[in-house]
């Protein structure tokens, strides 16, 4: 294979601004999806640990549904199928009415998918707390809501920070699938540069570096959060 290297291409316009805007869209998709995932995942995760069977069943159904379908299939379902099964008006809104429908479809899809994973982490975190704590809190006269609000949730979140980091990183990496429905994020832009200039190796190497930068930043952020929120004598980080 005779390849002609040309790193300078990445500094030329429009390629430089393509990479920059692609990076911006990647971060936008990932961060918004993560906000959805974290809020939805927390609610579903808590539901799966409640004593009442109905919320438990709903939570389980949600997790099984969103965890067991490949992400790419989910993306196509959200993009191609959901607007068609909705009433005509609502479908058209999803397809045309929204500004940037592809972007929001990707955000929602990624958020719901990652939400199922976050829910499992939250459930695992709550279940990891010895049942004595829950019983003690109830015995002190706290209501169930208070037990969750003041005892179970704050402690379980501290326990699950390390596994949550993986999901936070995953949301950035999975955001690259958005290109299949036409979101011009980082990977899509790298491909476009390859198609215009055939300098694919340079474009994808740059994308790799940018993905690494953002994932290292996430790791640092999560590590900092873990350190700052730890309760002495409770979390495994203390042992280090």
């Amino acid at each position: 294979m005779n390849y002609r290297w040309d790193w300078g291409i990445l500094l030329k316009d429009p390629y430089f601004s393509w990479i920059a805007s692609g990076f911006g869209w990647t971060c936008a998709v990932a961060i918004l999806a993560w906000i959805i995932a974290l809020s939805l995942g927390s609610v579903i995760g808590v539901m799966r640990t409640l004593p009442h069977p109905v919320p438990r069943a709903i939570g389980t159904a949600y997790v099984e549904l969103f965890r067991n379908i490949p992400l790419l299939v989910q993306l196509f379902l959200w993009y191609f199928v959901v607007p068609e099964v909705l009433p005509r008006e609502a479908g058209m809104f999803l397809k045309r009415g929204l500004p940037m429908p592809e972007f929001w479809t990707a955000v929602v899809c990624l958020g719901f998918y990652t939400g199922a994973r976050v829910a499992e982490q939250v459930r695992a975190g709550i279940n990891a707390i010895r049942s004595g704590q829950r019983q003690a809190a109830l015995a002190m006269g706290l209501t169930l809501t208070q037990v969750y609000r003041y005892v179970l949730v704050p402690v379980s979140y501290r326990i699950i920070i390390p596994p949550l980091t993986s999901d936070f990183l995953g949301v950035f990496k999975n955001s690259s699938l958005a290109l299949t429905i036409g979101v011009a994020e980082l990977t899509a832009r790298s491909r476009q540069i390859e198609e215009y200039t055939f300098q694919g190796i340079e474009a994808f190497a740059t994308a790799t570096v940018l993905y690494s930068v953002v994932t290292f930043a996430v790791m640092a952020l999560m590590h900092m959060t873990e350190k700052r929120t730890r309760i002495p004598g409770l979390i495994s980080l203390e042992a280090k």
């Binding site: 191609f80 607007p83 068609e84 058209m92 397809k95 045309r96 429908p101 592809e102 290109l179 299949t180 036409g182 011009a184 899509a188 476009q192």
Partner: peptide
Amino acid sequence: TVMVKDHPQAMLNLESGR
């Protein structure tokens, strides 16, 4: 503009009114 991967996907976008 919405980028597509191939002609069938383009047709799907047209047919669905996207």
